[in-house]
Amino acid sequence: MDNDQVLLEVKGLQKFFPIRKGFWQRAVGQVRAVDGLNFHIYKGETFGIVGESGCGKTTASRCIVRALQPSAGEIHFRVDDGEMTDIANLSRDELQPLRRHMQMIFQDPFSSLNPRMTLFDIIGEPLLVNGVTDRRQRVERVEELLALVGLRPEFLQRFPHAFSGGQRQRIGIARALALNPSLIVADEPVSALDVSVQAQILNLLLELQERLGLTYLFVAHDLSVVKHICDRVAVMYVGRVVETAETQQLFESPKHPYTEALLSAVPLPDPTLRSQRIILEGEVADPANPPSGCYFHPRCRYAVDLCRERTPELEEVAPGHAVSCHRALELDLAGTLDAPVPQTAHS
């Protein structure tokens, strides 16, 4: 992996939201939604960000595509195999020519499509505003895209309300692909869908990656989905990455106690695997008022005094495996792949 080109590098990304109160809406504090994020994504891979609600994964993904203005940090993005450009502080006009290289797939298949536009207008809009003014050319491209995501080209003049959740998600994917982007940021693309439809969309994403050589930043809370689709994963907790590694390694031998608990909490669709779960005490820390030291220490069963006092840095413990935990090297944590591979639903 290391030989591959880095497509995106995020350094010290921060996004704070002010808490406003009173008649004059003065800022009285801030929510540290993303609090110093570091990671990089190689060309052609799928990089996953997992975490629970409020961990900042969605905010981070929106900062990266610059739907939000980061408070601090750098976002280096490689355009057309050229030099890396820091897009974190570019203005609207400066961003305009770069937008086409990174697109987004949204979680909610209902709110992500304008109900007042036809499929042609929805999928064709990125083309139109990026200079494809010839209508016939656009029709051709939109039909091609519809076929690519498994929808019939005749659907061109239909409105989104004619489609089910899964089909709408395909439309959203077609729109994201319209400008041949190199990076697709997928924010929980399957979590709003029915179980039987989730697999269809995951398959489509995998197939598109193979055919078009796409790079995915895949944001999710469902660890099974992440395990299935990602090459490398970062686990976030209260605005920070606590652990990042190759998927197999992270699931096999997690080094952060939070990762361990997260992995253990996932209910598996196999009744023979009912095991003693690690039940975390307490609640996810409040990003407006985080605890001292390591944010996870109040819930951590391995916490020592050091954890309360000093914030751990994200440090590499093995090649490609970084953890932010003071005790990363001494702890022996359980992964999920230790259990024998069971025979679920026989075929």
């Binding site: 739907a67 937008r99 697109q103 709110s111 992500s112 304008n114 990026n130 959203g172």
Partner: peptide, 14 residues
């Protein structure tokens, strides 16, 4: 806050 507005923004709409 609607996603389709964000999508339009990302597509480069004015």
């Amino acid at each position: 806050e609607e996603d389709f507005v964000t999508a339009a923004e990302l597509a480069g709409c004015s």
